[in-house]
Amino acid sequence: MDRGNRILFVILGAVLLLAGLAVGLAGFGLIPAVDPATRLLPDQVRDRWHDWGTLAWIVAAAVGVLLAALGVLLARAQFVSGRGRPMPDLLLTDPALTGGHAAPPRSAAAGPDSAGGADSVAGAGSAGDAEPGPAAGPGRTRVRAAALVHGIERDLARHPKVRRVSVLLAGDAADPRVYARLELRAGADVPHVQAYVSESLARFTETTGLAPTDVDVVVQLTDRDQLRVR
């Protein structure tokens, strides 16, 4: 979004500069084609507006709605992370109940499913999370994406030099992407933390069957070094 904002303001700045210069130069009589005595709202424009009658107001209303819609899109874009949609819940199959072999994990479809009822739900969320999911048939386990995020966050936070962790899982089961922000304590050795993160990712893959195709880790160094007390 930062790049988009920058482009937007470059365009806006160029338009303001050119328009301001054009009107200013015309006002000083430096543009031969434009008479400085021209009115800001010439009679021809007013007459044309009246000629159009109600249609002119309808067009103005449509322009207003369009501007409002653009405003909503622009304001909403400021709150979007740009990392895609969070990963949906995960469906795992039990080989004993589904023909002797485990299917790779797949993403659960959004929305309720009437065929549910035999699923188990794994998650670390509130009790309200533990509702039958969209998975159908016996031997299927639905894993909340929030539980996966919580699990990897807890694992990363176990490192003594990691002060705070924030993880976002994006993509889907076939193309999982991990975005992590690690706040490290004073004196943290980053290569050591990198080794720990690799181990943590390996544990994540072993546990969930998800092999992240893209992992983006951002480190913030802090001078805070107080240890947690459990």
Partner: peptide, 16 residues
């Protein structure tokens, strides 16, 4: 950008 978006929203609705 947020301010500009809100101004566009308010101005556009008022115009409409």
């Amino acid at each position: 950008a947020l301010l500009l978006g809100l101004v566009l929203l308010a101005g556009g609705l008022l115009l409409a």
